[in-house]
Simulated assay, not measured.
Amino acid sequence: MAEVKSPLGEDARKTVGNALQGALVDLIDLALVAKQAHWNLTGRNFKVVHEHLDEVVDLAREGQDDVAERAVAIGVNPDGRARTVADRTALPQLEAGYLADDKVVAAVTDALAQVIARFRERVAETDEPDPITQDLLISITAQLEKQHWMFQAQT
């Protein structure tokens, strides 16, 4: 099987690959958390929160693909398997069952803040070894921060 030759040196590839893998896990689980909330949401703000959750899911799914494809482009195999995500996620999981809209807004606001903090660390880590990956992470972080602002405004 052919391997992708990395444009990065070994140390840079390892650092950037780790950043991308962490970002991939965060984005996959963020999409899952938001979709779980979307399906089980209740409350008087149901419609607006329900639709807003889909924006987060779409953002996270698009980001997953961009991050995974960047990993492959630098010669790193992304791992988005369910077991990997379950073992490595740092996001708190939602309760089972129906979820009140105010609790969902608070939980998603918190989840976004956690993901953003880790993305900002990854932005700093990739500055020197790969500004191209850093640019991708900056772009995703900006979109996550916009969603965080919009959810936080509902609290």
Rank of each mutant, 00 (worst) to 15 (best):
M1T: 03
V4K: 06
V4P: 04
S6K: 10
S6M: 13
S6Q: 09
P7M: 13
P7K: 15
L8W: 02
L8S: 05
E10H: 02
E10V: 06
D11N: 11
K14F: 11
T15I: 14
T15K: 14
G17P: 04
N18W: 02
N18H: 06
A19G: 03
L20Y: 01
Q21C: 03
G22N: 10
G22L: 06
V25T: 07
L27D: 08
L27E: 11
I28C: 02
I28A: 01
L30D: 01
L30S: 03
L32W: 09
A34V: 02
K35I: 01
K35H: 12
K35S: 04
A37P: 01
W39M: 01
N40T: 00
L41V: 00
L41W: 00
G43F: 04
N45K: 07
V49P: 00
H50P: 10
E51F: 03
L53E: 03
L53H: 02
E55W: 00
V57P: 05
V57D: 05
D58V: 04
A60F: 09
R61Q: 15
G63V: 03
Q64M: 15
D66K: 15
A68G: 12
R70F: 05
R70W: 04
R70S: 09
A71I: 02
V76Q: 12
V76A: 14
V76F: 06
N77T: 13
P78T: 00
D79H: 07
G80W: 00
A82K: 00
A82E: 02
R83D: 08
R83E: 09
R83F: 02
T84K: 04
R88C: 06
A90F: 15
L91A: 08
P92W: 11
G97M: 10
G97Y: 07
G97H: 08
G97E: 10
L99I: 05
L99G: 05
A100M: 14
A100H: 10
D101C: 07
D101Q: 10
D102M: 14
K103H: 14
K103S: 11
V104M: 10
V104A: 12
A107Q: 12
T109H: 10
Q114L: 10
Q114T: 08
Q114C: 03
Q114P: 07
V115P: 02
V115G: 08
I116E: 08
A117N: 08
F119K: 08
F119R: 09
R120C: 07
R120L: 12
R120V: 07
E121G: 03
E121H: 07
R122H: 10
A124T: 07
A124P: 01
A124H: 05
E125G: 06
T126A: 13
D127G: 07
D127V: 05
E128T: 08
E128N: 08
P129V: 00
P129G: 06
P129S: 04
P129T: 01
P131H: 07
Q134L: 11
L136A: 10
L137I: 11
S139R: 12
I140M: 10
T141D: 11
Q143Y: 03
Q143K: 13
Q143P: 01
L144E: 11
E145S: 11
K146V: 04
W149M: 09
Q152K: 14
A153R: 04
T155H: 09
